[in-house]
């Protein structure tokens, strides 16, 4: 500790980061995840089978990849509702290239490139022209998917090369799928980016108070643009995985993804108003969503009922703490 020059000494921290983590939203999510895991294990004998669990991971990995980028975007006070449409467009571009005989590496590059271009388009409109991201991405959502419909109509692209199937159907070792590895890598990269770099710090500052961030010499527009670019890139990666897994492209591919991605992000404790949230929270939220869906699936609950559970979960995770606070104030 240095000695005070003319002021009094102020301690760096009063509570240790570990103590803080114990009382956090993420800790609560972890408890919920474990509880659901145990409940599922008790409810169904098939649940603990590693192959079943590995299979079940597909229902969150693609969405969660995007959720990491979306989390950063929402922390910065923006939103991208066009992610599902970006997947559709990227998948369509890959499909067109595939029918023209493109090889797997070219397909992958086109998928990533389309994602980046779409992200850049959103970023240009929001950061460059200062338009509100929610309506811009509602517009680009129609535009991107609309282009897919123009290309495909009610048709589909099928017949992707065998090597392309690796991304969505392959295993790295034992039960660990390629998608699961991409998910874990994305979690790591985005976790470091948001929590351990000055870029991440600036994202928090912008989300808390964009004006004050600009008045602190931060290039707010540039950071917003990069965030849209990242979201586009992750949507491109998800498009590769999803197309590879389904083995076909229809214009309705990944319909409604944007809502599920936002749900994961919000469930993960990211404030929809910006300024707070963490990548570990999003990871846990993705796991919780995956476990709930899988568990209900094992109990033969139809998909649409699961969506009710998702919607109720989304509202109640935000409503319950507020109700609790209101009740305590009384």
């Amino acid at each position: 500790m240095t000695t005070a020059i003319n002021g009094r000494h102020i301690p760096d921290r009063l509570t240790s980061p570990a103590a803080r983590a114990l009382k956090s939203w993420e800790a609560l999510l972890l408890v919920v995840a474990i509880a659901i895991f145990i409940l599922n294990a008790l409810a169904s004998p098939y649940f603990l089978d590693p192959w079943n669990l590995s299979d079940a991971s597909f229902n969150f990995t693609e969405k969660a990849m995007i959720a990491f980028a979306m989390a950063m975007l929402i922390v910065a006070g923006e939103i991208d509702l066009s992610v599902g449409a970006i997947i559709a467009l990227a998948s369509t571009v890959m499909g067109l290239a595939m029918t023209a005989g493109a090889s797997t590496p070219v397909l992958v590059l086109l998928g990533l490139g389309t994602g980046l271009l779409c992200g850049a388009f959103n970023g240009l409109l929001v950061a460059g022209f200062g338009l509100p991201s929610i309506v811009v991405t509602i517009g680009t959502m129609s535009l991107f998917r609309g282009v897919s419909y123009i290309v495909l109509g009610d048709g589909a692209f099928t017949g992707y090369p065998e090597s392309f199937a690796w991304f969505g159907q392959g295993y790295v070792f034992w039960v660990v799928t390629v998608e699961l590895v991409i998910f874990a890598l994305a979690a790591l990269v985005f976790g470091i980016l948001l929590h351990r770099t000055s870029f991440g710090r600036m994202v928090y500052a912008i989300g808390n108070n964009a004006t004050a961030a600009r008045f602190s010499g931060i290039r707010v527009e540039r950071i917003r643009f990069v965030l849209f670019l990242l979201t586009g890139l992750m949507s491109g990666i998800a498009a590769i995985c999803l197309t590879s897994r389904l083995g076909s492209t229809r214009p309705s591919i990944a319909a409604g993804f944007e809502l599920e991605v936002v749900t994961i992000v919000v469930l993960g404790g990211v404030s929809i108003l910006g300024g707070s949230g963490s990548v570990p929270g999003v990871v846990l939220a993705a796991l919780v969503m995956g476990l709930v869906t899988f568990g209900l699936g094992l109990l033969n609950v139809p998909g649409i009922v699961m969506s009710i559970v998702t919607g109720a979960l989304l509202i109640s995770v935000i409503a319950l703490p507020r109700l609790w606070a209101m009740a305590r104030r009384r």
């Binding site: 003319n6 002021g7 009094r8 301690p11 921290r13 009063l14 509570t15």
Partner: peptide
Amino acid sequence: TQRLDLRAASLDQ
């Protein structure tokens, strides 16, 4: 913050 004689519980506040 010490040069400015800031009064705060901690720098993490």
